[in-house]
Simulated assay, not measured.
Amino acid sequence: MNGISNPFQACLHIWFNPKTVFAAVDKHHNWSWIPFFIVMLGVLLPTYAYFQFVDFDWYREFYVAFTAGDVSPAEKEAVLVSLRSQSVYMYSNMFAYCLGYVLLAAIIAGYLNMMTKVDEENINGFTDWYGFVWWTFLPVFITGVVMLLMILIKDDNQTSLYGLQPLSLGYWLGLNETSKWVGLADQFRVELFLSFYFMITGLKQWTRLSILRIYLILFVPYILIVGSSIFLSFYWASA
């Protein structure tokens, strides 16, 4: 296995030799707990740091304008009251982000498990693919590190979370959560394309599927999602 004898080595080697890593992981499915915890760390740390950094009074007003822009003043006040506790809101967000990744990994694993059944030699089941997905999620940790660095060097503490994600197209276009185009721009992120690269490499190692079939399995859903985002962006822009 070319010197990869433990999951910590695999987490380092995946950035420059993912082919060897996925070959090793195919024999050691229990290694996937390590990238799971690394990804969770990459999600939790920047979220915690952000809510220690941000002007929470400003954030409350921003959040209300974003989520309740067209409601009555009494309803806006009710939303503001619900955001009174900074710590409760922070921890609820941290929990929601973690749960979101757990559910997303399950959906992707179920999809890969179903689509790779055409390979008669493939014996991997849902739990194997679930572990596989966490290796492909490792670029999320890089995004988390970048966000932490942005928080450390940022002077303005009246900044949305989206304003701390320089690996996203939306950041370079100057968008934030209130923009009608943010859903579309969010489909173009460095970590997302790195994850696609890891998935392609991993599928080539774990299956005997042709490269064309692998591309179809991975990119058809992505194209549909981007197409839906384009439609919705134009719809809301013209509304």
Rank of each mutant, 00 (worst) to 15 (best):
R60G: 07
R60M: 01
R60C: 02
E61W: 08
E61V: 00
E61T: 12
F62A: 01
Y63L: 01
Y63R: 10
V64R: 12
V64N: 07
F66L: 11
T67C: 07
T67Q: 12
T67R: 15
A68E: 10
G69A: 00
G69I: 00
D70P: 13
V71D: 01
V71A: 01
P73I: 03
P73Y: 10
A74H: 15
A74D: 15
K76Y: 13
E77Q: 11
E77T: 05
E77C: 08
A78F: 00
A78L: 02
A78G: 08
V79G: 05
V79T: 08
V79M: 08
L80N: 07
L80P: 03
V81M: 14
S82F: 00
L83C: 03
R84P: 11
S85M: 00
Q86S: 12
Q86Y: 12
S87T: 13
V88S: 09
V88P: 13
Y89A: 05
Y89M: 04
Y89F: 10
M90H: 05
M90G: 05
Y91V: 04
S92Q: 10
N93P: 14
N93S: 10
N93R: 09
N93V: 08
F95A: 14
A96K: 15
A96P: 06
Y97H: 15
Y97G: 09
L99C: 13
G100N: 10
G100Q: 07
V102I: 14
V102R: 15
L103F: 02
L103T: 08
L103K: 12
L104A: 08
A105Y: 09
A105K: 13
A106F: 02
I107K: 13
A109N: 09
A109L: 10
Y111C: 01
L112G: 01
N113A: 03
M115A: 15
M115N: 11
M115P: 03
T116V: 05
T116D: 04
D119E: 04
D119F: 02
D119H: 11
E120H: 15
E120M: 10
N122I: 00
N122T: 07
N122Y: 07
N124L: 07
N124M: 11
G125E: 06
F126Q: 08
T127E: 13
D128L: 00
W129L: 09
Y130F: 14
Y130V: 14
G131T: 10
G131H: 11
G131I: 15
F132Y: 13
W135I: 11
W135E: 04
W135G: 08
T136I: 03
T136F: 00
T136L: 04
